Amino acid sequence: SISSRVKSKRIQLGLNQAELAQKVGTTQQSIEQLENGKTKRPRFLPELASALGVSVDWLLN
């Protein structure tokens, strides 16, 4: 799922939720909701993929 991929990649990069949120241009709460499965397809998906160094396709599939 996107939530597990985001969380595992974030941890692999040594980032906390607030640091990832800053790179993406969103809030820590938005990252938390995404990782908890409350958000399925965030509006900041391209920025998120870029910050994590992955493709949008990788996040979604």
Rank of each mutant, 00 (worst) to 15 (best):
R41E: 11
L34M: 06
Q12E: 15
K23F: 10
T27S: 12
V24I: 11
Q17N: 04
P42M: 10
A21M: 02
L48V: 06
Q12V: 07
S30T: 10
T27N: 09
S30Q: 15
L15A: 02
S55F: 04
T39P: 09
G53A: 06
D57E: 14
L20A: 01
Q28L: 15
E47C: 09
L34T: 04
K23T: 08
V6D: 00
A51I: 10
K7M: 08
N16H: 07
I11R: 10
V6H: 01
S8K: 12
G37K: 05
L60N: 07
G14C: 07
T27E: 06
Q22C: 10
R43S: 14
S1K: 09
Q29L: 13
Q17Y: 08
K7W: 06
S1H: 10
S55P: 09
V56N: 04
G25W: 03
S55A: 08
V24D: 01
L59G: 04
K38H: 14
Q17H: 09
L48T: 02
S3I: 05
E35K: 02
S50E: 14
K40L: 15
I2L: 15
Q33L: 14
R41W: 15
I31N: 00
T39G: 10
A18K: 11
R10Y: 01
V24S: 08
Q29E: 14
K40R: 12
S1E: 10
I2F: 13
P42E: 04
F44M: 07
V54D: 11
R43W: 15
T26G: 04
G37C: 07
K40P: 13
S3E: 08
Q12T: 08
I2D: 02
Q28D: 06
S4M: 14
L15K: 03
T39Q: 10
R5M: 06
L45D: 01
R41N: 14
L52W: 00
E35V: 02
S1G: 11
F44Y: 13
N61T: 08
L45S: 03
A18H: 12
G25R: 06
S50D: 12
S3W: 08
N61S: 13
S1N: 12
L13S: 05
N61D: 12
R10N: 00
Q17G: 06
L60E: 07
Q29G: 10
K7A: 10
E47P: 04
A51T: 07
S30L: 13
